[in-house]
Design a protein around this nucleic acid. Sequence first.
DNA 1: CGCTTTTGACCGGCGC
DNA 2: GCGCCGGTCAAAAGCG
Length: 164
Amino acid sequence: MSDKNPKAADSPPDSNQWFHELSDYLKLNDDDDDQWPPDDDNLPPPPPHPSLFVPNTGDFGASGSGGSATLLRGSSEEISGSENKNIIRERVAFKTKSEVEILDDGFRWRKYGKKMVKNSPNPRNYYRCTVDGCPVKKRVERDRDDPTYVITTYEGNHTHPASY
DNA sequence: CGCTTTTGACCGGCGC
DNA sequence: GCGCCGGTCAAAAGCG
């Protein structure tokens, strides 16, 4: 490929740290989408709603979304800005088989940015919950090896019930 | 009318 | 010190 890779695979293994590059994580487990590494340190919190990935509005039917969501990894990172305030940001990465990245998980999202990642020929979309008080952010990116797969990364907890 | 979306530019952090 | 990347915000336009 023409694109040069200034960054060879030399990234030090972050055992407990969330993978800085999502692609890195995918590369380590690109062959298994049904199984995840032993998360004995932290169990992935309740995922959004795998079943919500399908049923619903006719919009979905036309998209032909598969409906199979695979949890890549769940990590609870505690950001201690103050000694008293411990903000736990839950990160949940999902690999969903879908042709469109606009999967409706039951919440409303407003796209606030699009960026091209060097590790992927596809752009990365940044979504944020439109609900007031919902610091939840969603990152959507297409798989580099499987364009038919969409990587959805949720960050934060919804503080309000789903819109639907 | 309201809301959403799109692009660009900007900033910070980190690495070497 | 400089470069690079990622991430976010802003403004504007279009659409329902």
